[in-house]
Design a binder for these strands. Structure first.
Lengths: 327, 327
DNA sequence: TTGTACGCGTTATCAA
DNA sequence: TTGATAACGCGTACAA
């Protein structure tokens, strides 16, 4: 029952406690044979250092926090997997903190996370990437953090992101090439910077006819509502670009209810991790965002001192509907 | 920069360190006014005790581990939210550990989690709820744990679950009442106990014509493949029950590709959190499993000493397609 | 009801 | 390249 400690290992290996600690932390100035002896003892005893003790003594907790809340469960899941992938390579634990972005105080939750667990660094995802008060606090307290797809303050922290405007433009261009002329857009939750960027990219190519621009919040229900509105127009769009795949699914559903053929009378496009698009496949054209890779790179920035502070990752246009408008 | 400690609080409140500790841990034998003074100081200094120090000194880490891997991102997300809900009520941190159930060694990952973080208890979700080696290890080491929807060893640990067989039977009965006679089933990943239970509940009412029973693995792709097979039969089923909503979505997609009308020529039913069904709404009838509540109750068993050790939660049949078979 | 002294398991400091 | 010893911040045991 008694926990295996570093001193058990030091006894087994016939060295001092401090030497074991050196091996564990990959410090220099350890003889090759000493190192080997210690490593053997560690393996034999299945020793694993206590995070609590390391944290108390060393000031490093070997833990990284991930603050992530998102309307899409796929997004949250993939982000966690990506961050975890990189963390486990480094022998660091990810503390994933599902918080409530509609709740009163994300800042309070982060403060708790930092104070109680003493995480070494933080990965932030929208929308709290753009909370000026939070950013100030973090900088003031000297907490290291990376932001995923931030909207403001590029100098405040490192970041990983994709070029949402370019991607949105590419989708519209694709649809125009198929012959579509009336293309609608359903925007995402305005508290996410990506929403405005996607809208801007859309408008730059498709124009800004207000009748064809709707607001949404990244949910299926919002897609359903906006889709129904757009399809009820006197001159309904022949294609709709949604700011994410969940809303695109809602639009598909609205089309279904109204008896509008997809594809055929309507083409629908979205944004998202491919996992989502899979659920409504094969009707949906989508900008695939590499969520897991974003998480991996975010953690990498924190764990690997060298390397670029800001990293743009590629998106891919996955075309599953190459249908033009009905004549 | 220096961390606020208990001794800062004790100085501010004019009491001893130990007294502050007593207040923090809600111990008895603290004078009401003393308590008030301490609480004021804690609030003023925004003091939060270090998990590391508490864990080291007291043997309790105030952390609960959640080992959860599942083909459905919705499941993982809802389970995390449920466990977190109950944990945060108790001032305990959830350490959510996304692991790889296909990976070599979930046991190793759990051992690491336990040894390094010294979590006070564990919540396990399928399929590792049914790994005899793991269960032995945990019992042997005296780790407290709760299992969600376990398949074996009811005496090994407390558990939370729904009655899958009854739910599957209810779906079939619903379909039969609508007039369906040839009903297909696509099973889930066999390593999840729920798969066999759902199949058994299905067979008990619908019979076990082998032509109408297919195996799947809970993925959209499996649903797509099995759906295509079933619909290609000389006498295709007029309804199909899938073991989860992701596969049901795959079946819907297969029907779409083959030009089979849903609803009309085919009815499809699934199992899952309502979040998934929402994506393919309104074509899907589904058994709604309260995933978040399962997580909440699992954590509750660990955090609240009283209360039932085994808890069955209710499922709901959400009927969205009340269509009988085509004549 | 409150306070003192000690120890949890590890890393940092400094000496050998 | 190694080792002794003092922290880290808190809870436990025991005394007052």
């Amino acid at each position: 029952m008694a926990r295996t400690t570093i001193s058990d290992v030091s006894r087994a290996a016939g060295v001092s406690i401090k030497t074991v600690s050196r091996v564990l932390n990959n410090e220099r100035y350890v003889g090759a044979d000493t190192r080997a002896k210690v490593e053997a003892a560690v393996a034999a005893l299945r020793f694993r250092p206590s995070t609590a003790a390391r944290s108390l003594a060393g000031g490093r907790s070997h833990q990284i926090g991930l603050m992530c809340d998102n309307p899409s469960a796929f997004y949250v899941h993939q982000m966690q997997l990506g961050v975890r992938d990189r963390c486990s390579e480094a022998g660091v634990r990810m503390i994933a903190q599902p918080y409530d972005r509609h709740g009163a105080d994300a800042i309070e939750e982060i403060a708790q996370l930092i104070d109680t667990t003493r995480v070494d660094a933080l990965v932030l995802t929208p929308p709290i990437t753009d909370d000026p008060v939070l950013l100030d606090r973090l900088v003031e307290r000297g907490i290291a953090f990376v932001r995923v797809a931030p909207g403001i303050g590029p100098d405040v922290s490192p970041s990983v992101f994709i070029d949402n405007a370019a991607a949105a433009g590419a989708v519209v261009r694709h649809l125009r090439e198929l012959g579509h002329r009336r293309i609608g857009h359903v925007g995402g939750d305005p508290s996410f910077a990506a929403s405005a960027r996607r809208r801007a990219g859309f408008v730059a190519v498709a124009g800004d006819d207000p009748r064809l621009l709707r607001d949404g919040d990244f949910t299926f229900a919002a897609g359903l509502a906006a889709g129904a509105e757009l399809l009820a127009l006197p001159e309904p769009p022949t294609a709709i670009v949604a700011a994410n795949d969940e809303m695109a699914a809602g639009i598909l559903s609205a089309a279904h209810r109204l008896g509008v053929a997809v594809p055929g009378a309507l083409s629908v496009a979205g944004f998202g991790d491919d996992a989502v698009a899979g659920v409504v496949w094969p009707q949906l054209t989508t900008v695939r965002q590499p969520t897991r890779a974003l998480g991996y790179q975010a953690a990498d920035i924190l764990l690997d001192p060298g390397g670029a502070r800001h990293r743009e990752l590629p998106w891919t246009l996955v075309v599953r509907d190459s249908t033009g408008p009905a004549p």
